[in-house]
């Protein structure tokens, strides 16, 4: 019925897979993938991520520019109150990211990612909790949309041109980033519900 499937009329309708051609096609692909992954691990290639995973982030030093934050709700159905923070450019040093997943058969599995230095652009984080030992702001601003004199008509927005903090711990509900470049990454997966302690990034 579908005759246009085979414009070459010499074919009999059946076909086979050439192992030699398969290897010739697959090997360059895998080599290219290895180069990209190695470049990503070395910080030469930026990798884009978007996700909504339960993670805890500890960072010895955080610096960001173009920061604005306002209350929001995150999670499916918007049930979780969160602070939505938009950052134009951010850099973290000596960071440790932990995420625990409870799998049906295996049980609790914790992934611990230690990062020597990472930078991100176009970062949006919806965080439910954030603590820091010290924070330094420059060019801070605060605004509340108000069209009547009696009460505000919208959510407040706080922001700063530059923000830096030490010993920061946060639990982001969701994040998006245009690009993330990292250096000195080590990943450890273990079968328990532990995490990394503050200051133990290295």
């Amino acid at each position: 019925m579908i005759d246009d499937d085979f414009p070459v009329m010499t074919s009999t309708g059946a076909g086979r897979t050439s192992r030699r051609r398969f290897a010739l096609a697959l090997v360059p692909l895998l080599v290219g993938a290895c180069v990209l992954l190695a470049g990503s691990a070395a910080g030469a290639v930026s990798v884009a991520f978007a996700g909504e995973v339960p993670v805890t982030v500890h960072a010895a030093r955080v610096s960001a520019s173009g920061v604005s934050a306002s209350p929001a709700a995150s999670g499916r159905g918007g049930l979780l109150p969160a602070l939505a923070t938009r950052v134009e450019q951010a850099t973290v040093e000596d960071a440790c990211v932990t995420s625990t997943a409870r799998l049906p058969v295996v049980g609790a599995v914790t992934a611990v990612v230690r990062i020597e230095r990472a930078s991100a652009t176009g970062l949006t984080v919806e965080a439910g909790k954030a603590t820091a030992r010290s924070v330094k702001l420059s060019g801070a601003k605060f605004s509340t949309p108000r069209v009547s004199l009696r009460e505000p008509t919208g959510l407040f927005t706080v922001g700063a041109q530059k923000v830096s903090g030490n010993t920061v711990t946060t639990q982001p509900h969701a994040f998006t980033a245009g690009t993330i470049t990292s250096r000195g990454v080590s990943i450890d997966v273990r079968r328990d519900a532990g995490g990394c302690e503050p200051g133990a990034a290295r």
Partner: peptide, 28 residues
Amino acid sequence: VAANLGGLLLGFLLTAVGSALALAWIPQ
């Protein structure tokens, strides 16, 4: 590099093998 590390590598592996199979198929 653009889509969550190729769907956490599994999507990359599936599509890489699939594309290689497409290139290696020969009609009889």
